[in-house]
Nucleic acid binder design. Structure first.
Lengths: 217, 217
DNA sequence: CTCTGTGAAGGGATTCACAGCG
DNA sequence: CGCTGTGAATCCCTTCACAGAG
C-alpha cells in the first residue's frame, strides 16, 4: 500500500461533509463562508478545515473566507461526481433493502443499478425499482450496467467469493457489511462496517471510560 | 477530549476482531495461537497483534504463542461483557428493522430492549419481539430498561434532540446513522455511520486512485 | 532455532503559530 | 484588525529490531 499523493482518509471524510454543508448553503444569500463557520457546523476546528481545503488546492480569500459556489464546484470536481456512480448490492436482506430504499429517493450521486441474491425466491423480483439477479449472472449484468462500487450485505460465508467476483469485473471499491475479513488485491479499497465492532467500540469509549469523547474536537 | 489511558480506537476495533476469531476457535482442539496466525486471519501484521495484546495486559508464552482460552477470557473481561448490553433504537425504518432482525438472532452480547418512533402507526407495535414506543415516552422506558447504548436511525432533523434526550438519561454511547452532526457532552462518544461518506470514500480510494489500498496491511 | 515483549524509530495527521493580505 | 495559507512542532499509531525465553 503506497498512499502516494492521496489525501488522508480522515480528510476525505471531512471533505464529503463540507460538500454537503456547502450544497445546502449554495442557494442561500450568503456568498462566502469562513473556515471557522464550517468548523463550527461540523464540530471541528478551523485549522482542520483550512488544511483540508488547502489539500484539494482551493484558495480562499483572506478577510472574506471561501466563495461557497467556487469551493463547492471544486469539491464536486475533486470527487468527480459529474455523473452518478453505479452501485451494485449483494444480498437483498434487510440492509440491502434499507440501502435501496434510501438511494431510490436520492439518485443524484449514487445509482443502485442492480442487486444480487442467491435465494431463488428473490431472483427475478424487483424491490423499489431495483431488479434482483442471481449471483451467477453477475458478470453478464456487470457488463451491461458497469458498476463502480459494490456493497456486500450477505452472510460472511458468501463474502469472499463475491469480493473476488467483483474484482474480476473491475470493481475496486467495496463496502463490506458482513463480518468476513476480505482478501483482495492491493488496488481494491475495502471499507468494513461491522455492527458488532461499532457497538463494542462506542460501548468501550462511552461507558467504560466516562472521561473521554471522540466527538468533540 | 483527553484520551487518558485509553487504547487507540484502531486497537479497540482490532481487539473486537481477535475476540471473534478466538471465540470461533475456542471449542477447537488447538489450545494456542500465534500472533502471526491471528494476523494472517485478519489481514494485519504480527507486530500489530502483539502490540494490541500487550495493550490489554495479556502475556503470552514465547514459542507456543497465546493460550486461546485465557486470551479470550482476558478480552471478555476487557470489554466487560459478562452480561448483555442494553441497546435502544430510534427510528423504526429500514435500518432500525435491519438491526433489530440482526440482533434478535444474536442476543448474547447486545440486547435491543426497545425502539422508538414518532409515527403513531408504529407506536405500540412489535417488530420481531421488539416493542416500539413513542419518543415522548423515552425517559419512562429508559428508567425501566436501563439502556447503555443508543442508535439513531431517524432522519437527520430529529437526531440532535434525540441525542440530547439520550444524554439526559445517562446514555453516553451513540451510534448515529443519520447525516446530522451531533453536538454532545464531552463524555459522550458518538460514532457516525454516514452511508454517503462511506461510498464517497471507497469510490475515491478505489476508483480515482488505482495504486492504493487500505485493506492490506 | 521460533516465538513474545517492548524500546526506539518512523510516518502521518493534527495543532500551533505566525507571515501576509485585504 | 479579521481572515487564510503554511512551515514547524506535536502527538499518536505503526513498524522495526532485537533482547529474552523456551
Amino acid at each position: 500500500m503506497k498512499r502516494n499523493k492521496l489525501l488522508p482518509v480522515k480528510s476525505i471524510e471531512r471533505l464529503c461533509l463540507y460538500r454537503r454543508v456547502l450544497h445546502s448553503k449554495a442557494s442561500g444569500k450568503k456568498k462566502f463562508i469562513f473556515s471557522h463557520e464550517l468548523a463550527s457546523i461540523l464540530n471541528t476546528t478551523s485549522s482542520v478545515v483550512r488544511r483540508d481545503i488547502m489539500n484539494i488546492g482551493y484558495i480562499g480569500t483572506p478577510k472574506s473566507g471561501y466563495r461557497i459556489d467556487e469551493l463547492l464546484r471544486c469539491l464536486n470536481d475533486f470527487f468527480n461526481t459529474s455523473t452518478a456512480v453505479n452501485v451494485v448490492i449483494f444480498g437483498l436482506g434487510n440492509i440491502g433493502k434499507a440501502l435501496i430504499s434510501y438511494f431510490s429517493m436520492r439518485p443524484q450521486q449514487f445509482n443502485i443499478v442492480a442487486c444480487f441474491d442467491s435465494a431463488p425466491i428473490k431472483v427475478g423480483s424487483t424491490f423499489e425499482g431495483c431488479r434482483c439477479y442471481s449471483i451467477k449472472d453477475f458478470s453478464k449484468v456487470a457488463e451491461q450496467k458497469v458498476p463502480q462500487i459494490g456493497i456486500i450485505s450477505t452472510p460472511a460465508s458468501a463474502a469472499q467469493e463475491i469480493a473476488e467476483t467483483m474484482e474480476s469485473s473491475g470493481i475496486h471499491s467495496i463496502l463490506n457489511f458482513s463480518t468476513a475479513t476480505l482478501r483482495t488485491n492491493e488496488e481494491t479499497f475495502v471499507e468494513n462496517v461491522d455492527i458488532n465492532v461499532l457497538l463494542e467500540k462506542i460501548y468501550y469509549f462511552g461507558t467504560l471510560n466516562k472521561e473521554v469523547s471522540a466527538n468533540c474536537f
